[in-house]
């Protein structure tokens, strides 16, 4: 057997490992891009622990059973779903200061912000890139007309059962494939300019 210079062997293995690493990174990016978890899937911690279960959970389950549109007021009127303003939270929370210790602490955070005239810096759960425009009201109108349901009942189509989430997380990928699949299913337009402009 011919003796091979060990330096060459080392070089070959280094290059080989390097190549493997690069290929690995490439595959990682590829998989991440196509199959990666969306931003909000990890259910980020929010500055104020806002339990959707308490606010919009059904009354049987100990919630208040509020409509989604009670707080997300403009979701059926405009493109943006809108996070309610602090002022709007305070409509109720002027009176409701919490029963449990945990609730009292969280509500007091809100009261402090309101008194200071400061906004709440929520962590984003659902995010679409800048070059995409999603129009909430058009979707809500379509589904509620088609199925004869109220606006608030449409939300779960994309957002899942938020009413049962203590911490909101994203349940659908909400990537372009997801959008286009649905648009095809309901023969909605799939022209690029519908979302990109």
């Amino acid at each position: 057997m011919r003796k091979v210079n060990p330096i060459i062997l080392i070089a070959i293995s280094v290059v080989g490992f390097g190549g493997l690493l690069i290929a690995g990174v490439a595959v990682f990016f590829l998989f991440n891009a196509w199959f990666g978890l969306p931003v909000g899937a990890q259910a980020p911690d929010q500055p104020i622990d806002f339990p959707h279960t308490v606010h919009s959970g059904s009354i049987e389950n100990g919630g208040l059973g509020l409509d989604c549109t009670f707080c997300h007021r403009n979701v059926a009127e405009g493109a943006a779903a809108t996070v309610p303003s602090v002022q709007q939270c305070m409509f109720c929370h002027k009176q409701i200061t919490g029963t449990s210790d945990k609730a009292k602490i969280e509500i007091s955070k809100l009261t402090e912000l309101s008194e200071a005239g400061q906004p709440v810096n929520w962590k984003r759960v659902h995010r679409l890139p800048d070059h995409v425009e999603f129009v909430h009201d058009a979707h809500i109108r379509y589904f509620s007309e088609m199925n004869g349901i109220s606006a608030s009942e449409v939300c779960s189509t994309c957002h899942g059962d938020v009413a049962s989430m203590v911490k909101v997380k994203q349940v659908r990928a909400l990537k372009m494939g997801d959008c286009v699949d649905c648009h095809r299913k309901y023969s909605a337009p799939t022209d690029c300019t519908i979302c990109h402009r």
Binding site: A79, T82, S85, V86, Q87
Partner: peptide, 22 residues
Amino acid sequence: IPEEELLVQSPATMPEDMVTGL
């Protein structure tokens, strides 16, 4: 994703007639 894109700020006050995005 740039940090500011992971932030969604609720305004402190909001006039009644103002609809976000409209």
